[in-house]
Each structure stands twice: as C-alpha cells, then as structure tokens.
C-alpha cells in the first residue's frame, strides 16, 4: 500500500534512494546507517523506503504526526519488531558497519548494545535493585556481588536516583513515582552499558518537573551514548536534539541539523508540522 503522493512528496523508486531531497541524510561519523528500510504489519505498510544515518555523539529526534512510523522505525533499530506476530521488515540497518538484520547477528546480543526506554515507565515487578541489576545479570556483566552492587549504584547515581532510593533498594520499583520510575528504567538500560539508547516518547506520561529532569539526563547521557528519541513535542526536540528527522505517513520527509530544520525547513510539510498547522 502506497501512501497517496502529495505535490512536493514524490514517492521513491524501488531501486534508488528517494528522489526528492530529504536534507542531510548522511552523518560524518555514522554509527547507525539505515537503507531502504520497509516494514509491514500485516497489510499495513508502516515504513516506506526509509534511509538515513545517525552519527556518533548525536541525539536524533524523530518527529512527525501520530501513526507516521516513528515508533516502528525505532523498534526496527533493536529488532523489537521480530516478536510481533505479523510484522515483516526488509532493508538494511547497520550498527558500526554490521547489518543487524543479517543472520549472524543475535537479537539478544544486539539489544545489549542498543537499549530502549518506553513511553510508559515499565519497571519490572521486582525490587529497585533487581530492576537495575537484571540486564547485567542476564548478560553476565558482573562476576560477583560487589561488581553488581557497583553497577547498580553507578547506574542509579547517573540517573540521579541514588540519593532518593539508597535506603529502599529492596522496595518494589513499582512503588516509585512516575518520573522516578522512568529514571529507574533509564538506569536499567544504562546498567548494560549500551552504545545506543532508543527512547520512545519517554516524557509523555510525566509531569513538567519530571520531564525537565529527564531532559537534563538526556543531555548528560548524550556525551557517552548515541540517543534516538521519538517525541511529540517540538520544544523537546529543539531542546535535546542536535539532529531531527521528520516523518510522515511511513516516509522520511526531511532530516537535518535541528537548528536548520526549525529555522529553514526544505519542505512545506515539515514547515506545516513544526509550526503546528498539522499533526
């Protein structure tokens, strides 16, 4: 199923790249390269010939109206769509030059390198300590209890949660407030020490104060991790990202430096969206 083409929105050919300009799809020091990525859920064509790069040290914001394929794209980056019963993905996504959809890549190992934070905080029904320790435990990252303690403490410290929960590490993670739960989930993700962190609207369920804390955290983490963040909020995209990709109806419309996209969008569609006329 093709999306209906618009005046300035020419559909891509099967073989080559998009014929209309998408801005600056390539990054100087690419970490993730996406080529000809297509995804279907049953008969629904959710991603359509998407191709661009995400560089090391980047925070890339994925923006676009609801149902445009942002989350699908994000879930293609750690192969989380594999488990969805009728999902199908074609194309190529490379992580440091290696195609993650090739047979030799184990999705389990891949997810140790590409972590993910979800829209709604989803701590495990376990203690705070076990929530953070879980990833390190299954991947065997600590050889003894002391090392595990170290990992848990560092991770909690980095998300600024340690001083709030130091005395109640044994209490269930589900007892924390929403913002704390989300930071716990981020701590859980960085405890595995991934290269990339995917964030799917991490602040949409939080109040403004908790949101600000998470945004600060993203800023700090960006020094060490490549971050891909899906967001509905233009302001958040402008605040935390250095590049922005705008998607519409399963297609990549435009990608480029955040400042450039917000001040000088190439496409009318992009402009309409960021100025709030559609979406």
């Amino acid at each position: 199923m093709r999306t209906p083409s618009k005046a300035n929105d020419v559909a891509a050919d099967a073989g080559g790249g998009p014929e209309f300009p998408v801005g600056d799809p390539s990054a100087p020091d690419p970490c993730i390269q996406i080529r000809d990525l297509n995804a279907w859920y049953g008969d629904i064509h959710a991603l359509c010939d998407v191709g661009f790069e995400i560089g090391h040290g980047e925070v890339l914001a994925l923006i676009g109206p609801s149902g445009c394929g942002k989350t699908t794209l994000l879930r293609c980056l750690n192969r989380l769509n594999d488990a969805v019963e009728d999902a199908r993905v074609t194309g190529e996504v490379t992580l440091d030059g290696q195609n993650i959809y090739s047979g030799s890549v184990d999705p389990v190992a891949l997810r140790a390198r590409v972590g993910m934070v979800f829209q709604k905080p989803n701590p495990f029904p376990k203690s705070i300590y076990d929530n953070v320790a879980y990833g390190a435990r299954i991947h065997g990252l600590a050889s003894d209890r002391a090392e595990l303690d170290e990992i848990v403490h560092t991770s909690l410290e980095r998300v600024g949660l340690l001083k709030e929960v130091r005395a109640r590490l044994d209490e269930p993670g589900t007892d924390l407030s929403g913002g704390q739960q989300q930071r716990l989930c981020i701590a859980r993700t960085i405890a595995v020490d991934p290269e990339v962190i995917l964030m799917d609207e991490p602040c949409s369920a939080l109040d403004p104060i908790a949101t600000a804390k998470i945004e600060d955290l993203i800023d700090e983490l960006s020094a060490e991790y490549v971050i891909v963040i899906v967001t509905h909020s233009m302001q958040q995209a402008a605040r935390v990202s250095n590049r922005v990709a705008y998607m519409n109806q399963g297609q990549l419309v435009e990608v480029g430096e955040t400042d450039r996209i917000f001040t000088n969008p190439l496409h009318k569609l992009t402009e309409d969206y960021i100025t709030g006329r559609i979406g």
Binding site: A109, A112, R113, H139, G140, L141, D193
Partner: peptide, 12 residues
C-alpha cells in the same frame, strides 16, 4: 564488554 555478552549466548 561485548565479548562477555557473546560468551554467554550459547549457554543462554
């Protein structure tokens, strides 16, 4: 780090 993960994969 990644070697640690890889080394346990078979068993897992």
């Amino acid at each position: 780090m990644n070697r640690v993960v890889e080394s346990r994969l078979r068993r897992r």
